[in-house]
Write a protein that binds this DNA or RNA. Structure first.
Lengths: 173, 173
DNA sequence: GGGATTTGATTAACATGTTAAGTTCTTGTC
DNA sequence: GACAAGAACTTAACATGTTAATCAAATCCC
């Protein structure tokens, strides 16, 4: 691309604005608003049970396995290491989970859900499923499944996308 | 790899387990992972310019209007009041925005972007658009537009959904 | 073996998410 | 026109997001 910097490629009106994509229609904003609309339905129920969204994600992830290493749990629950460390410390103090060190590698932590944790999940699950069903009915189960497929597709598309090229007039440091 | 749950030859009481939806396939997780995959592309560039994702959202929202009240800006940038208060204080100290009180109602704050803020946007925008184009190309522009429509539809579907009914056995034992 | 390097997890520091409480200004009501 | 009620932030307090630094254990390499 031999395009010199800052070429008004389009007839921009004498506005002092950049011809950027309409902010409210950007993909990150669309995803953020959609997720917020969904979570707004779930948060009150979780809160009634003394759980944050992230704590619930961890318990749910743990309930699906026998035991799991910390790093793997972070991937599974989509949390960063430091956040997970803090939450695990808290959940352990509340005796909702149990941890131990891996025999083969003492650096690795292995986490599992406790009986108390399982009981809490059983307590929250009905309301959670109820809300989920209400969303599916309102939006359409078929449409919802399609949306999930498109989201998964987007995720895998970007998994191998590495924008190495620094756009024009970037590297200013 | 799905390891079966604890064999537990001894105390194996729980049999009224509620089969919950596969955690990793839940709508909130799908939305979260998709958004994370997208933002992972943008964050490095924003960071190079000393901006967080939220600060960038605010500047972008401000660049689309002449001036806007704080409450309206919160809706526009999808931020809660307290977060916005802190960020505005910071952006004002950096002279990227300007604020004043509304003449008709001294409680209301009116915010607008400064010349310095506009210059910063001009600096970041090319890279941002470049990344956006890469995503659209990889995923498919047509598919991307359809995804946006489905997300907007989901959002409006849930806008009027109020799950008043507390699901069965909410506060049971 | 023993030191340098890498790796898994935590801690530190700062920014934001989230709810509750506080401040200031406006509006309704008497 | 005083005062209660409401509205628009703002602060406070705690939990999480994010990156950098730290620490202990494992691995590499001689």
């Amino acid at each position: 691309m031999a395009t010199p910097k800052k070429s008004a490629d389009r007839d921009a009106p004498p506005e002092r604005r950049i011809p950027m994509r309409d902010f409210s229609k950007s993909l990150p904003m669309s995803l953020l608003r959609a997720r917020e609309a969904v979570m707004r339905q779930f948060r009150p129920s979780l809160r009634r049970h003394g759980l944050t969204e992230q704590q619930w994600r961890i318990l749910r992830a743990l309930s699906a396995v026998d035991a799991i290493e910390v790093t793997e749990l972070a991937r599974s629950a989509c949390l960063l290491g430091p956040s997970l460390s803090r939450i695990l410390r808290d959940l352990e103090a509340r005796q909702l989970i149990e941890r131990r060190a891996a025999k083969a590698d003492l650096r690795r932590g292995v986490v599992s859900i406790s009986q108390k944790g399982l009981r809490l999940i059983e307590l929250v699950a009905p309301t959670s499923e109820f809300i989920y069903a209400a969303i599916a009915e309102r939006y359409g189960a078929q449409k919802l499944a399609e949306l999930q497929n498109m989201l998964a597709s987007l995720e895998s598309s970007l998994a191998t996308l590495h924008v190495t090229e620094v756009a024009p007039s970037e590297d200013a440091r």
